Computed example of a mutant assay.
Amino acid sequence: MVIPVLLVVASLVVLYFGADFLVKGSSSLAVRFGISPLVVGLTVVAFGTSAPELLVSVQSALESNPGIAVGNVMGSNIFNVCAILGVSAMIYPLRVNPRLIRLDAPVMLVATLLFVGIFHNGSFGRWAGILFFAGICAYMVYCVYKAKRGESVEGDEEIKLTKSWMLDVVLVIAGFALLVWGSGLLVDNAVIIAQALGWSEAVIGLTIVAAGTSMPELATSVVAALKKRTDIAIGNVIGSNIFNLLAVLGLTATIAPVETNQINWTDMLVMLGTSLLLLPFMRTGFKIGRGEGVVLFVIYIAYTLYLIV
């Protein structure tokens, strides 16, 4: 038991440096190519840090562990909104770009509603997966299209350039590699610890695995908040939630349709409720303040205690 705990601690260190490299490289690249940090946070950073969710969910579905496959995505989205945004907002109030309210947050909410509507009977089939995966492709195309048109994005922040674009690329690649490796190290050992405690597959998926695969998002957003790059901090979370639902679940169900009765209405309503709660928080003064961050974090603690108890 001692070795898995030490490896979990080591994985957190790896994730921190991976996130730091990723934020530096992607932010610098955004400026060099005329793309706003917000768009980078919603696409490159968000999707790169969601790679562990994709790997874990696909592998779980193929190995006939549907509770972990779906619980990983749902738990990650709850963790992203409540824990990551909560902690990030407590570190530094998150300024909300109007684009997030106009487009990205509504896309996340619609995807969440669609998932709850389709998965209410515990089944997420191949056609649903294809529909969701087509949705992420359409979203990506739209983001790139708007970026190429030079969309004006209010509130972009000053980003310090590195010495060269080649160094940017090296930082991004190294960051991705460290994030994926660190997440795998964390999840493997966290699952060992959870199984030793006698937790069920669904609880493992909704808590340990979900939090473990979301560590890249946590590290990335916290580092971005510390550097006061709030566009990346909040854009990373919303983009990751969109990716988790549309790409991770979509690709997972396309490869191996998911059926499980271990996910209940409480879990789905918590995910939907926190997504809904985020909208008024974002609209209030166009920022998520420290008080709202505390509320989000308390919700996550309460939900986790509910799952464990």
Rank of each mutant, 00 (worst) to 15 (best):
I35Y: 05
A256H: 15
T213P: 00
V40D: 09
V203K: 11
V58Y: 05
W127K: 00
I68H: 10
M74D: 12
L103V: 12
V23Y: 05
T304Y: 12
D156P: 02
G125W: 15
P4F: 00
F47K: 04
F47V: 14
A147T: 01
M108H: 12
S152V: 15
E154C: 09
T49W: 04
Q262A: 09
M282V: 02
T274K: 11
I255L: 06
G175D: 09
M282S: 10
I238W: 04
M271G: 02
G205L: 06
V5K: 15
G289I: 03
Y306S: 13
A138K: 08
G289V: 10
M1K: 08
N97Q: 11
A19T: 01
L85A: 11
M271Y: 08
P98I: 01
P106Y: 00
V2T: 14
T230Q: 03
V73P: 02
L171Y: 11
L277Y: 11
G291I: 08
A134Q: 07
V2E: 15
R283P: 13
P216V: 08
F281T: 10
I299Y: 07
L167F: 13
L249Q: 03
A225D: 00
K24N: 11
A247L: 05
K163H: 13
V44Y: 13
V248H: 06
T220P: 02
V223R: 00
G125F: 15
A224E: 03
L178K: 07
V153N: 09
N264R: 04
D168V: 00
K163N: 06
A105Q: 14
L249R: 04
R32I: 02
Q262N: 12
G289A: 03
T266I: 07
S26K: 02
S164Q: 05
L307E: 13
L62K: 13
T252H: 05
L114Y: 08
V258A: 02
W199E: 10
G205D: 01
I238G: 00
D188A: 15
E259F: 08
L42M: 00
A174K: 01
A194L: 07
L55G: 07
T49H: 01
V170D: 10
S76M: 05
I84H: 05
V258G: 07
V31G: 07
A19C: 00
W127F: 15
Q195T: 15
A89P: 00
R283K: 15
T260S: 03
I234G: 14
V31T: 13
G41S: 06
S221W: 03
T254V: 01
L197A: 14
L179I: 04
V294P: 04
G273L: 05
V172Y: 10
L279Q: 12
L6V: 12
L167W: 14
Q262F: 08
N264M: 06
Q59I: 14
T112P: 11
I159K: 05
V203I: 13
G239I: 11
V58E: 10
H120C: 11
H120E: 13
N264F: 06
Q262V: 06
V172M: 10
C137Q: 12
A69K: 05
Y145K: 09
V5H: 10
V309Y: 15
E63H: 13
W265H: 15
V172G: 08
F297D: 12
V294L: 14
I299N: 07
T254Q: 07
G25C: 07
N121L: 06
T266M: 09
F297M: 09
T207K: 09
L206R: 03
V153M: 11
P257C: 06
I91L: 05
G41N: 00
S57A: 11
